[in-house]
Write a protein that binds this DNA or RNA. Structure first.
Lengths: 224, 224
DNA sequence: TTTTAAATGATAGTAATACTATTATTTTTT
DNA sequence: AAAAAATAATAGTATTACTATCATTTAAAA
């Protein structure tokens, strides 16, 4: 039995809810694919419209601009990751095991239990790695933050921080360590693939050395 | 006595060397200011031309496009940072002291000894924090890397990694830890300013807690 | 089942962006 | 003083990033 998942997104992310119509879901589905294929800079609503077989104007009824679409899909990813985290750490007793799961989740090592037919999660994960930071590295970050657009990312970060505190209640940098873990996992994956001399992992498909690095980083930092 | 500094840049970064003419230096100087003021997305050569009092076409003779200009200035920053690192760690015996300097350099705590009259280094540092990652988070990363555009970043990373190995010669993740340190220092500074709940530092100007966090992260990771 | 409303398609249009090209003028070097 | 290099002035193009209008299709409510 597969678990059907529907994530309710912050309405400020869109003009019309893409999850409610065929066209909307197509925008998300093909949007993810196209951003992945040609990169966010070259991605336009025009190209996406042609891909889907609709018009530019129709896409603009769903999203104010391509940056909002990027924020929508990355935010969806963070929400989904938090679900995964809750699901997979449920019933685990020791925080060490939970942290293990977190690192596995961040490095593609966990089999997905949830199904969303129009979202390809591994393509989405690849986008989050390459383009995700661009959703908050803008001049509108403060306005977007006030609209709560980054809440899912913060929630995930906070949940991870709490697990860190289970292991070491006196640790004074739980949130910074959590955001560092998320960012580092993704950035090292990116470097491994594109700028390998900034890492110690070579270019092999193997994620184990990265996994060990992150484990080492987190557990030594949390050790009393 | 102030040290005059001239950094020789990779010619693939530009079409005409901006360091050789008044207009070129103005492009760098006002380019840094304008990118800082309006953000890289809204920055255009048109706007920069108006700012300088020249024409768009003249700027295009120096840089192929605005992305190249961004890579030029961030690369300049990494080269300058490596100079600073060499200068300030010179004659230091213990790697612990050197690592201290590295962290101070990454968090704006070191007084600059070099002078470059047309580059405002604290504005540049702010750009590197907000926009720097965009120079390699593109579809052209592999081509740019082949042209050695990221060599200064890699050199800095390698130098830091070597210092880590002085402290712990058996540490297997020296490069990843170095790139993580650089990225984390900047990302946490960004979060502190714009998304403070992803950190434990509040929004005060104080960089000390960040400094402690980074010290803790690095020294526990390197500890045998 | 009609009617009404909502969503989409088709088309057009605008201002700005990201360039390239040409020629005249100024500045620098020889 | 002549030659070469750099810059300014101007123009032009394709694409991007939208907004607007109206006709048509599809879905929801009466």
């Amino acid at each position: 039995m597969e678990l059907q998942l529907q994530i309710k997104m912050n309405p400020k992310l869109y003009l019309r809810d893409p999850d409610g119509t065929d066209l909307g879901r197509n925008i998300i589905k093909h949007g993810i694919q196209l951003i992945h294929d040609i990169g966010f800079e070259d991605f336009t609503f025009k190209k996406l419209a042609i891909e889907i077989g609709t018009t530019e104007a129709s896409i603009y009824r769903y999203f104010e601009n391509k940056h909002r679409l990027l924020t929508y899909i990355t935010t969806w990813f963070w929400t989904w990751l938090e679900y995964q985290l809750i699901f997979h750490t449920n019933n685990l007793k020791h925080p060490k095991e939970k942290i293990d799961i977190i690192i596995r989740l961040l490095t593609f090592q966990v089999q997905d239990k949830f199904i969303v037919e129009y979202i390809n999660k591994s393509t989405l994960h690849a986008i989050v790695i390459c383009e995700g930071d661009k959703s908050y590295l803008t001049k509108q970050v403060t306005a977007d933050n006030k609209s709560m657009l980054f809440k899912p990312y913060k929630d995930l970060c906070h949940r991870i921080a709490e697990i860190f505190l289970e292991l070491n209640p006196d640790f004074p940098f739980s949130h910074s360590l959590a955001s560092t873990l998320i960012e580092t996992a993704h950035r090292q994956l990116y470097f491994k693939e594109h700028l390998p001399s900034l890492t110690d992992f070579g270019k092999s498909k193997e994620v184990k050395p990265l996994f060990s690095f992150l484990q080492h980083l987190i557990f030594t930092a949390l050790n009393k």
